[in-house]
């Protein structure tokens, strides 16, 4: 019996040592901050998978409007369907399938656009419209207060553009052409 105890002790000790070794080697490339998932707006192709692939319904991916980049256009490529003739807020003219963008008159000829994130489902239709005809001020981003930060993001596995990546939690946005903090643009 004593011999068995001794063997056990030896094995336990070596296991402990190997666990310590493992931890040591892991600490080599560790990271004190946490990671969160984010879409790289530069890579996003607005394929529409964010709507269905996220484990949450509605998706944690929403469109973000960067007003600093917006041209406040009357004819907004992100708001109106491409062939729209009468620039009114009627449902037949709106690109957004869920009525999540509001259009407010500021002064002639400028309009401000805002996103109602409760309604946004992250389809990216407006993003594609703004990219094609406007400044690209509408961009899809993961909203971290909604995202549960899965260990393996389900959208990341489905994303055809490989646009999802882990980013440090202290820099949680990946905008296109915009640094995200102030009003300055990246060159």
């Amino acid at each position: 019996m004593e011999r068995r105890e001794f063997v056990n002790k030896g094995i336990r000790l070596s296991l402990l040592l190997s666990l310590a070794g493992l931890t040591g080697s892991l600490l080599q490339n560790t990271f004190s901050d946490d990671y969160v998932w984010q879409i790289d707006a530069n890579k996003c192709t607005q394929c529409g998978r964010c709507v269905t692939s996220c484990i949450l319904t509605p998706s944690a991916v929403k469109v973000v409007h960067i007003h600093d980049m917006c041209g406040y256009c009357d004819l907004c490529g992100g708001y109106f369907k491409p062939e729209t003739k009468n620039l009114t807020t009627g449902a037949e003219n709106q690109l957004c399938p869920t009525n999540a963008i509001t259009r407010t008159y500021i002064e002639d000829p400028f309009f401000e656009y805002n996103i109602n994130e409760d309604l946004c489902i992250g389809c990216g239709k407006c993003v594609a419209g703004c990219d094609a005809f406007g400044n690209g001020s509408l961009q899809l981003q993961v909203r971290h207060e909604i995202c549960v930060n899965c260990n393996q993001c389900a959208i990341a596995t489905d994303c055809p553009a490989d646009a999802f990546k882990r980013v440090p939690a202290n820099k949680p946005n990946l905008f296109k052409g915009f640094s995200g903090e102030g009003a300055d643009f990246k060159t």
Binding site: D34, V36, V64, I66, H67, D68, M69, C70, G71, Y72, C73, I106, E107, F110, E112, N114, I115, E117, G134, N135, Q141, R143, H144, E145, I146, C147, N149, A169, P172, N173, G180
Partner: peptide, 22 residues
């Protein structure tokens, strides 16, 4: 492509809605 306009009547631009992680 479309520069941001300078508003005559002093329009206040909405803040960028940030979503800080946990």
């Amino acid at each position: 492509r479309f520069p941001k306009p300078e508003f005559e009547k002093g329009h206040t631009q909405p803040e960028l809605h940030q979503s800080p992680p946990r």
